[in-house]
Simulated assay, not measured.
Amino acid sequence: MVAENILGQPKRYKGFSIDVLDALAKILGFKYEIYQVADSKYGSQLPNGSWNGMIGDLINKRADLAVSAITITPERENVVDFSKRYLDYSVGILLRKPEEKINIFSLFAPFDLAVWACIAAAIPVVGVLIFLLNRLQALRSSSSQNGPPGHLSNGVGSGTLHSAIWIVYGAFVQQGGDGVVGSVALRIVMGSWWLFTLIVCSSYTANLAAYLTVSRMDHAIR
Rank of each mutant, 00 (worst) to 15 (best):
E99H: 09
N154S: 08
E100V: 15
D112L: 09
F105I: 07
L139P: 02
P149M: 15
L113I: 12
W116K: 06
S144F: 13
G150T: 02
P148R: 12
R140N: 09
E100S: 14
F108E: 05
N154M: 07
V156P: 02
L129G: 03
L129C: 08
F111N: 00
P110T: 07
H151W: 12
S163A: 15
L136D: 05
I130W: 02
S142E: 04
G159P: 02
L133C: 04
T160W: 03
R135E: 09
Q137I: 03
G147T: 15
N146E: 07
I102N: 08
V126Y: 01
G159R: 03
F108K: 09
F108D: 00
I104T: 08
T160P: 01
A117T: 08
R135Y: 05
N103S: 13
S158Q: 05
H151R: 15
S142W: 03
T160E: 03
R135C: 09
V128A: 13
I104H: 09
A122C: 06
F111Q: 02
N103K: 13
C118V: 11
A109P: 00
A109H: 13
S106W: 11
F108I: 05
E99R: 12
A117S: 09
G155N: 08
H162M: 15
Q137V: 04
L113E: 09
I130R: 03
L113T: 11
N134I: 03
N154D: 09
L113Y: 11
N103D: 14
R140Q: 11
V126E: 00
P124G: 05
G150V: 02
L132M: 13
L113C: 06
L161I: 03
L161S: 00
G157V: 00
T160N: 07
H162L: 14
G150I: 02
R135I: 07
A138R: 00
S143K: 15
L133M: 14
P148W: 07
R140K: 14
F111D: 02
S163F: 10
G155V: 04
V128E: 02
G147N: 11
D112H: 10
L139Y: 12
A120Q: 03
L139F: 14
P124A: 06
S144D: 08
P124Y: 06
Q145A: 15
R140A: 13
W116R: 05
R140P: 01
S142F: 00
N154V: 06
P110L: 08
S142L: 03
H162I: 09
L136A: 09
G150W: 08
I123M: 08
F105P: 00
L129S: 07
H162E: 07
E100N: 11
I119V: 12
I102M: 08
S153H: 09
P124Q: 05
N154T: 05
L139C: 10
L139M: 13
P148C: 08
L161W: 03
